[in-house]
Amino acid sequence: MHALALLAASVTVMGAVMAMTRRVAVHAVLYLVVTLLALATVLVMLGASFAAMLEIIIYAGAIMVLFVFVIMMINLGQPDSAREKEWLRPRAWCGPGVLATIMCAELLYCLNPPSGPAPAPITAHDVGLSLFGRYVLMVELVSFLLLAGLVSAFHIGRNRVGGR
């Protein structure tokens, strides 16, 4: 494994861990962005540059901005940070840590993939062809999903204005 690959992988994992342990939400978002960028690097190394671009543009760009907006609007202040500290006592990590470790160990134990010759990278051209060829119905379904998300987000937001 390349040194670069090792670096990207470790940055991904570390970023995820840091994002999950921060007390201030904005810091966590920043770590999450770092994780996503590192993950995009991993994707490039897998030969999926199209997916990597999407990851950066949509995930690190759009979705994270959404998080930042919401954190700004609900304005979590000092007491919130203190409360997070209260919630993040070492004792709280016991059960979930054990559960996640078991899960991780089992999954790693299950991994036994074949290794084969190196494939050629898949271009955006191939993805587009199969996206609008074989999977065009799925694209339509996803558009339904997006529409449903849009409508429900709108509905919830409208209730906020008209409600109590």
Binding site: I102, E106, L107
Partner: peptide
């Protein structure tokens, strides 16, 4: 979520 994860662990354990 914990129950889901636990069930998943149990199922994987059985598979393993």
């Amino acid at each position: 979520a914990a129950w889901i994860a636990g069930g998943l662990c149990a199922g994987l354990a059985m598979a393993v």
